[in-house]
């Protein structure tokens, strides 16, 4: 009973929030409703017993991703209304049919997969402990690859968003570095 009430409440809230995020013409409304939707989604993870996943969802999405988006919005002009494109009717029709077929396949998937056996069954210990066991034994290599991917993404983000990233201080001579500093000073005086 409690599960049903929680499910329907949070389903309604997430669908509403994501609908607002997709349809509104104000960029700030879209950002805040997306953040709210992310937090409501973590409620499903807690209902499903995936406690660690729910905590990660809150930390990563509303902590890191939303902070990045908020930082990005300071760069762009978000005060004017977002213009929508007039879509091609044939493409929209085709994609709608495709998503309808997808819906049928997804809903009928549990019927086909009735005789699936659990590869890594859920044990008696807490969720975090079980996740840690599986993640650091069977999924150790994908975990390390994901770590390298995050490192690459971090370096890429710094290089792309930083200033004067095409220059390398280690490859320049002392005189060039001094000249660059002089130029910076002159620019500041001029501006």
């Amino acid at each position: 009973m409690f599960e049903a009430v929680a499910f329907y409440l949070f389903a309604f809230l997430t669908i509403t929030m994501f609908y607002i995020a997709v349809t509104t013409s104000q960029a700030l409304y879209a950002l805040s409703s997306l953040a709210a939707g992310m937090i409501f989604i973590s409620a499903f993870f807690f209902i499903l017993g995936a406690d660690f996943l729910g905590a990660v969802q809150i930390v990563v999405y509303s902590g890191a991703v939303m902070a990045l988006y908020a930082f990005g919005m300071m760069f762009f002009d978000t005060t004017r209304d977002v213009k929508e494109k007039q879509g091609n009717k044939a493409i929209i029709l085709g994609l709608s049919i495709l998503s309808a077929i997808l819906l049928i396949v997804i809903v009928s998937a549990p019927i086909v997969g009735n005789n699936i056996e659990a590869l890594y069954p859920v044990g008696n210990a807490g969720n975090v402990q079980e996740v840690g066991k599986v993640l650091f034994t069977k999924y150790l290599v994908p975990f390390e690859v994901a770590a390298v991917m995050l490192l690459v993404a971090m370096v890429a983000g710094i290089v792309l968003a930083g200033k004067k990233m095409d220059l390398s201080l280690t490859l320049m001579t002392e005189a060039e570095i001094l000249m660059m500093k002089e130029e910076d000073k002159n620019k500041k005086v001029l501006s």
């Binding site: 660690f52 969802q57 699936i116 659990a118 993404a153």
Partner: peptide
């Protein structure tokens, strides 16, 4: 089965790096 949760973790990691780049 815990495999689904593992995949969800990797999806979250991919989403985070996608946002950064």
């Amino acid at each position: 089965d815990l495999t689904g949760q593992m995949f969800a973790f990797f999806v979250i990691a991919i989403a985070a790096s996608e946002v950064a780049v």
